[in-house]
Design a protein around this nucleic acid. Structure first.
Length: 885
RNA sequence: GCGGAUGUGUCGUAAUUGGUAGCCGAGCAAGACUUAGGAUCUUGUGCCUCAGGGCGUAAGGGUUCGAGUCCCUUCAUCCGCACCA
């Protein structure tokens, strides 16, 4: 009897696929059914794969193989997001060129991935660090630089089509240049940025955690002012928001993107300043509460603070601004902290009633949002309420809350409690200015006051977004160089398209400068350039962030070897959009938002044909692992721990430890390497196990004990089908046929819905049935092998060959469930009494209801429950019968 | 605090979407075959039980002939956001 020798089988078929290029994708435009299925390509770290990687990769692989068998032309590629800090850190420590480290890591990843039997088209492999690739990343940067956003038409356009206002033209060349620069999607400017002194790197807002630490290293970041490249993503905020609606993405991810974009509607309102000529414009979502505005707050960074501060208050205000600038973001945003602020000594005039209200400076108002100034309505805004209470500012209630509790209502109206909900306005009239809101509700109030403000020309309806300009440069070596030259006369030019790629120079030292200069500033030969007129210039020394390469890689897979254009547009039209994109939820906002942004720009420029890149997105859940810690919290490596009578002890010392479930990480010493699993059980078992663990999107703990289930299953499959004495050529047993076709139906539906765990369970049920019968026909075996092959492709190929077929199973037609085997003529009808299942009775399918009733009521088991009563009988045809007493 | 999700045996999970709760697997127990088994094959396995049943899907309430599934309240866990005016 033959036994399941997985390592031999897997090696043989991996070689077969490699030699025969089984999974090479042709750009066969005659097949209208294309399927582009994509994994989030990995950063090839030095540690190699962990078992989380194969989860998503197996899911897409099953789908890809299934679609091929369904006759689709499938694009299923893999590549490397290979720029990044670790290789550069290693270079700083050892002097090894990051490219060397990167290539080594890619080799490891490629080997490991190939050992999982994933059906990628390796001819399309890409690497973001390859100049042939980043040439086009730089090319896109040129496009961003040369694009402006036409707000009227809501699309990006070539910078040469930018209309220049007359007054700018009159002001001369310099003004014209400035104006154009102010409209480009990519611009270079002083930016207040976060800097991580430990990594010596500038961080994007989104790389800084709430507690003010750098997400990469955990050390505290500080504020710096540096010249930086920025991208004007907020121009696309509205389209990034509305575009979400037609996408088949998890609701949670869409919601996170919506929150990140942070659209709000309200109004900008101008306030005159008592004794000054200037006007302060505030942004508010509640213009209806103007009558309750009892003070105003400017952000410490607001440009008008200095000018408005009275001489008596100057010292205090200056001190406050300095102390605010020294605060970390943690201190500034921590809710537990008391609000702080100082009075400027100046008063603004409330436009609805001409009342003077004090102007304060406080750091709870952020310069980066709205206008950096607010009107404060303590009675109807929690933050203002807290601030007003602390500093003894008036709290004027102008809205009677829509609540029943009379006590609470009293507190709110007297200004002792804050109310931000709906209600009816009170004290909100001014006859002189012809405005009244009294008696209205909030919705009507906002509409009324906004109209009034606009009519009086003191403000305007306004939509605001939290989304900020994207800080796009890093003081690093191992990234795409910007194709930019800064000339001695202060001008900036971009490297010509035909001179791309601009490659990285060789360096001796990778260490960044003390003040955050990039290591590239040491590359003197590379750095300095002179143009035809003898003008001297210096190359941009910043490099692009890691997001750059991953923003558009899905487009390069379409035509990865094209050396004269980014991709062939006929191929792009055929393959785009990505039909299914699977990856971790950690990229919910950044990668997916940035990609969508670039894609929309490219779409506006006519470079891509679709408005959105990823039609369906699915997040695989994280795989957690057991970890162990001692009473003092020290982590103990999993392989040093053993179980004894339900307790966990360190094998060597006998010390008891606690078992916890946590994210796999080096520090917890609980990372599981797929190589070990492949070695002991084989890749097919690993694939099956990861899919069988639970729903693809659930967070699941890795418990290797369970791997025996899938392993036994595959062994049994092999023993049944590989041993020819079990395979017959006669008529199939009707029960096997019925179960087989049920399995075909179930597996097909489950794959389509990404429910691989239940698909596997269905195949196990089939096998249990077949195993009991001991024999199956060749036809049955063929159908079952096809079902199994996307999940366990090596075994699928092997059994396909052993049952007398030649070549690969990868393009064999997917089986179809035949209805005639699915319908049965009798079924076990459950009978419940008062909703509780009591017994089952065999009934013919589609028996008329009165017949059913007659049979059921005559049954002695029913009689026992009914007794003398006259029951109501509810019949759900072919499903259940309920007797109600 | 706000937003999203989840809660079912000892464990991972399943349930034709309002119709038999616990499929499939792990673990455990008993047995068979074996020189041996961390192999293989049977069988059993939610809890309680006076053996007729009773109780069970985080807790409580509701709608329904019928609720794991729908509605309300509460609790717990996870994820994201967090002074965005």
């Amino acid at each position: 009897m033959k036994d399941y020798n997985f390592s031999g089988i897997e090696k043989r078929w991996q070689e077969y696929w490699e030699v025969n290029k089984t999974f090479r994708t042709e750009d066969d435009f005659t097949n209208p059914n294309k399927y582009y299925i994509l994994d989030m390509f990995p950063y090839p770290s030095g540690a190699g794969l962990h078992v989380g990687h194969p989860e998503g990769y197996t899911a897409t692989d099953i789908m890809a193989r299934y679609k091929r068998m369904k006759g689709f032309n499938v694009l299923h590629p893999m590549g490397w997001d290979a720029f990044g800090l670790p290789a550069e850190q290693y270079a700083i420590q050892t002097g090894t060129h990051p490219a060397v480290t990167t290539n080594k890591n890619c080799d490891t990843f490629r080997r490991q991935i190939k050992e999982l039997g994933l059906s990628y088209d390796w001819d399309r492999e890409i690497n973001t660090t390859d100049p042939a690739y980043f040439r086009w990343t730089q090319w896109i940067f040129l496009k961003l630089y040369n694009t402006w956003y036409d707000q009227a038409n809501e699309r990006g356009r070539d910078i040469n089509e930018l209309p220049i206002p007359l007054d700018v033209i009159k002001a001369g060349d310099e003004a014209r240049k400035k104006y154009i620069d102010s409209k480009r999607l990519a611009y270079y400017d002083d930016a207040q940025i976060w800097y991580c002194p430990s990594c010596r790197i500038v961080c994007a807002n989104e790389e800084v955690l709430t507690d003010g630490s750098h997400e990469k290293c955990g050390n505290k970041v500080v504020r710096r002012n540096l010249k930086q490249w920025m991208l004007r993503i907020p121009y696309y905020a509205e389209r990034l928001l509305s575009g979400l609606e037609k996408l088949d993405w998890p609701e949670g991810i869409k919601e996170m993107q919506r929150n990140w974009i942070g659209r709000s509607t309200g109004a900008e309102v101008d306030f005159m300043i008592d004794g000054h000529k200037e006007i302060i414009t505030v942004y508010t979502t509640r213009p209806d509460t103007l009558f309750g505005a009892t003070y105003m707050v400017l952000s410490p960074e607001h440009p008008m603070v200095a000018g408005l501060t009275s001489p008596e208050q100057k010292q205090k205000v200056d001190d406050y601004i300095v102390s605010a600038s020294l605060k970390s973001d943690l201190d500034r945003t921590d809710l537990a902290k008391d609000k702080t602020g100082v009075f400027t000594g100046t008063y603004a005039i409330n436009p609805v009633n001409n009342k003077k209200i004090p102007v304060w400076v406080a750091d709870y108002v952020l310069m980066g949002y709205g206008t950096g100034a607010i009107m404060a309505v303590p009675a109807h805004d929690e933050r203002d309420f807290e601030f007003a209470k602390k500093f003894g500012i008036d709290i004027v209630c102008i809205l009677s809350p829509a609540i029943d509790d009379p006590e609470q209502k009293k507190r709110i109206i007297s200004g002792k409690e804050c109310w931000s909900g709906d209600g009816v306005y009170i004290n909100s009239s001014d006859s002189e200015r012809q405005i009244t809101l009294d008696g209205l509700n909030v919705e009507k109030g906002i509409a009324t006051i906004t109209r009034w403000i606009e009519q009086r020309n003191i403000g305007i309806h306004r939509v605001n977004y939290k989304l900020r300009d994207w800080l796009f440069s890093r003081q690093r070596y191992w990234g795409e160089p910007f194709p930019v030259i800064h000339w001695e006369d202060g001008r900036i030019t971009l490297v010509d398209e035909k001179d791309l790629p601009l490659t990285l120079p060789e360096l001796e030292v990778y260490e960044p400068g003390e003040n955050g200069e990039s290591p590239l500033s040491n590359a003197t030969d590379w750095l300095y350039v002179t143009d035809n007129e003898g003008r001297r210039g210096k190359r941009e020394t910043n490099t692009m962030p890691q997001w750059a390469g991953s923003c558009w890689y899905y487009l390069r897979f379409i035509d990865p070897k094209n050396d004269h254009e980014i991709f062939d547009s006929a191929k792009e039209k055929y393959w785009m959009p990505v039909d299914l994109y699977i990856g971790g939820a950690e990229h919910a906002v950044l990668h997916l938002l940035y990609s969508r942004f670039w894609h929309k720009v490219l779409h506006d420029l006519g470079i891509v044909s679709t408005d959105e890149p990823f039609m369906k997105l699915f997040n695989q859940g994280m795989i957690l692992a057991f970890a162990y810690e001692t009473a003092t919290g020290a982590k103990v490596a999993s392989d040093q721990v053993s179980e004894k009578e339900g307790r966990f002890i360190i094998t060597e010392t006998g010390e008891e430890v606690k078992q916890i479930v946590a994210k796999m990480s080096k520090s917890l010493k609980n990372v599981i390497n797929p190589d070990d699993v492949v070695k002991s059980y084989g890749a097919d078992t690993l694939r099956l196990f990861e899919m069988f663990l639970g729903p693809l999107d659930a967070t699941k703990p890795w418990d290797e004990k369970g791997i025996k289930g899938p392993f036994n299953f595959l062994s049994r499959v092999y023993r049944l089908i590989a041993n020819s004495e079990n395979i017959t050529d006669g008529e199939e047993d009707p029960e096997i046929l019925r179960v087989l076709h049920k399995t075909v139906k179930k597996v097909t539906e489950d794959i389509e819905a990404l429910r691989f765990n239940t698909a596997i369970a269905a195949m196990m049920i089939f096998l249990n049935t077949a195993f009991k019968k001991e024999k199956i026909t060749r036809d049955t075996a063929a159908v079952f092998i096809k079902l199994l092959s996307p999940f366990a492709p090596h075994l699928g190929e092997e059994l396909w060959q052993l049952t007398g077929h030649t070549g690969t199973i990868a393009y064999e037609p997917w089986p179809v469930a035949e209805e005639k085997y699915l319908t049965e003529d009798v079924f076990e009808c459950p009978v419940s009494v008062n909703g509780k299942m009591r017994f089952k009775i065999e009934l013919p399918v589609n028996l008329p209801q009165d017949e059913v009733k007659k049979i059921i009521l005559a049954d002695e088991r029913a009689q026992k429950w009914i007794g003398t009563a006259t029951p109501k009988v509810i019949i759900v045809p072919n499903r259940i019968v309920n007797i109600v007493l």
